[in-house]
Design a protein around this nucleic acid. Structure first.
Lengths: 207, 207
DNA sequence: TGTACATCAGTGAACGCGCGTTCACTGATGTAC
DNA sequence: TGTACATCAGTGAACGCGCGTTCACTGATGTAC
């Protein structure tokens, strides 16, 4: 793995710290989230397990950083999705954000698992991260408010609940696809069209 | 734990098999699903780990049976929920089924985790169980078809997609509550009212 | 420019842990005579 | 009714595994003189 590593990286600003996180991402591309461990990450990076302790207090701190990175990626992908709807209406933006979310979940299943494992991560290091709702929440609310301005009706009494409903629909559909016994790798198009249709119906033109 | 156990249960029809499953359920009431192991279950049942191998081929087979039992419970609770809406309309039945689901998830979080762990269970013994969608699916479809007869409109083009939307909303809302960093034990009432309101809006009277 | 030294990112061996699983066993049960 | 025996559900000790973590170490780097 990787090229020869000099014995010391002094002055390189903790290059190994980033290497380990990248190694974890690579590992998650071919293994389930539950197989992720400090030892596996170190091995993937071509380094001894001990070396990780020079950069992270413990295994939990490493995992927390990996989780943080996954959140960052998911957030970026959703922003990118919204950008694809530029020039179109707010509903299109909402749809594209949720579809981007679906894409991340289906294309990077292990990273998605890591983010949304139903059981709370009890790593030693606290993950002071927004929950799954937070990163998407603001921009979802904004898109919904704009959709109202554009003459659409809300599915729930107010913007807050409508945003929660939007996220619930997308998250629920995706989670169900992930849990299904015969998980279908080709399910993504069906899920995207499901989300697009659902949101269209949830936010109808009322003019 | 438990009362004194005779050295042999011969002729008692595998009493320990049931004991072990019950012990697993008890264990899940105080520990996360990821802590569940053959050894823990045996210990909870007051029995040596080895004894489990007289009743299960391996740890996976035991876990599969536990998962099966959780499905059975969730299904029963949803049926019971639907029964509470007896005499009311189909929408009420749908709402009560989904609320029963929410109750199981919030009151028995570890059992819910076990059922809906996002990562596929790769136990040695295949779990030939309906996915999360299946157990609820038929009765949800039936309730929706009846709601249509009662003059309600569908949120999606057909019954199938409307059922999937219903399950996605409920499952999504519940899953988000489970993943939230500051999980609130008192969130259940809010979730139930969310589900009730959402379904009311999704299936409006069109007369 | 050359040399001595402090720094610190890496190493490999070792620890204790809980896991699943196997082994030879024990002893109560139910049955055949 | 009594006795000898086969059955088999339990036991405890032991195995190898991967885990997180600690330890004393090494050796390249950058710096002070």
């Amino acid at each position: 793995m990787a090229t020869k590593r000099p014995k010391s990286l002094r002055g390189q600003g903790g290059r190994l710290k980033l290497d380990l996180i990248e190694a974890a991402m690579r590992f998650l591309d071919r293994a389930p989230a539950s197989d992720l461990s400090l030892r596996m990450v170190a091995s993937e990076a071509g380094v001894s397990p001990t070396s990780a302790y020079k950069h992270f207090a413990n295994a939990g701190a490493l995992m927390a950083e990996v989780v943080r990175e996954c959140w960052r990626q998911l957030g970026a992908q959703m922003v990118e999705g919204a950008a694809q709807a530029q020039g179109k209406d707010a509903l299109a933006s909402l749809q594209q954000q949720m579809c981007a979310y679906a894409r991340y979940a289906m294309e990077r299943p292990s990273r998605y698992q890591l983010l949304f494992a139903l059981e709370p991560m009890d790593f030693d290091a606290p993950i002071d991260l927004p929950g799954p709702v937070q990163p998407a929440y603001r921009s979802v609310c904004a898109a919904i408010a704009q959709a109202v301005d554009e003459g659409r009706g809300l599915p729930m009494p107010d913007v807050h609940f409508s945003a929660l409903l939007t996220l619930s629909v997308a998250h629920g559909r995706i989670a169900l696809a992930h849990t299904a016994p015969h998980r279908d790798a080709n399910a993504l198009p069906e899920i995207e069209s499901f989300i697009i249709t659902a949101l269209e119906r949830l936010f109808p033109h009322v003019k």
